[in-house]
Design a protein around this nucleic acid. Structure first.
Length: 107
DNA sequence: CCCCTGACTGTCG
DNA sequence: CCGACAGCCAGGG
């Protein structure tokens, strides 16, 4: 592919996944933050859709929650276990604000 | 091109 | 605190 970027869409996906993979243990961020960090603006939905379709084990999807700190529907138990194992404060199917690593929301 | 769906988000009652 | 609503963006039928 010496010509232009036929994979423009795939490039965005790669960036998003890359941001998620850059998360370290105990670090939790929201879909919106991931989208912004990846430089795709308000594609928070695409982030979730992407993670849902990704089978890659190198992608720590459990470190991603929604803006309310809510865990992934249907996988709350597993996600909670993984987060707690990393020292994240999880309660009632959601992550506590204080447990966020890159939390960039008004406190 | 139109319509529906979604691991989202912010506002309102 | 929580449910209902509307807004936004991209993918799939």
């Amino acid at each position: 592919m010496t010509d232009g970027q036929r994979g423009a869409g795939a490039d965005r996906d790669v960036r998003i996944i890359d941001v998620v993979r850059s998360l370290r243990p105990g670090e939790v961020v929201s879909y919106g933050d991931i989208a912004v960090d990846a430089g795709v603006g308000r594609q928070a939905r695409r982030v979730g859709q992407l993670l849902a379709a990704s089978d890659d084990d190198s992608v720590p999807w459990w470190r991603v929650v929604n803006a309310a700190g809510r865990l992934v529907p249907g996988l709350e138990a597993e996600q909670a276990a993984l987060l707690i194992a990393e020292g994240v404060d999880v309660a009632g199917g959601r992550v506590r604000r204080a447990a966020y690593g890159r939390f960039r929301r008004h406190p």
